[in-house]
Amino acid sequence: MRDISTPQTIDVSLRDVVKHYGPFQALKGVSLEVAKGETIVICGPSGSGKSTLIRCINQLETHDSGDIVVRGITVDGTPANTRDVRIEVGMVFQQFNLFPHITVLQNCTLALRLLNKGTKRLNEEKAMYYLERVRIAEQAHKYPAQLSGGQQQRVAIARALCMEPPVMLFDEPTSALDPEMINEVLQVMEDLARGGMTMICVTHEMGFARRVADRCVFMADGEIHEIAPAEAFFDAPESPRLRGFLDRILPSTAHS
């Protein structure tokens, strides 16, 4: 979460970002600024462009127009900038996407090793440090398929953290999990947020959003309809579409 006492630097800035898939316009001019240390939660109906938006930030999708700047690097599609941005940004997917044929520890050290970050011992120490932070160090020598979904997702978070990115993107990290495993992952994310990580999370976990998010973003039809601090977002939504959306996904007692 953001420390309000320090002057605000912008880690991620999007201005009028437009993205088409063929003739279909998935993003219709989206603007958003994310401050260093801020936690943003993005929600909205299926197909509204949430994934597309965060995937443009690390260029898993290339945007058609508009400006994206990540920690001073303009995301313009040039190979050098794309590479630099991916060093700054870690990502966690709905389906974990761990590498199945190597151990948890190797999943975590692989990128360090290939990018010549340090000695084998230092890399393993770093990996173990982050595996401990996601509370799964004792499983380091297992293969991903030997772990539960929640454990796999925590490994995926640790794997991203090993590169020590200042910005983390989460695309529905708990949507593929059994209900009893959701909290262990949300808890890890909350710890990260409180530790000062800049985070953009697509999630429908509204309890997490209320507790952890500095601001919440509501998207529909490729546009941002509302951006508000978590409290106002849930208790006093302005746009009718957000009101309708919250009515549908929240238990009826949650807001009046």
Binding site: L60, I87, N97, F99, L115, A160, M163
Partner: peptide, 24 residues
């Protein structure tokens, strides 16, 4: 997702094929 994980981790393409994708 296997390709995307290699991409976002910044794995050099040749090594991603050699160590992650081709074994699978």
């Amino acid at each position: 997702g296997q390709f995307e994980a290699c991409t976002v981790l910044g794995l050099p393409r040749f090594h991603a094929w050699r160590l992650i994708l081709l074994p699978q």
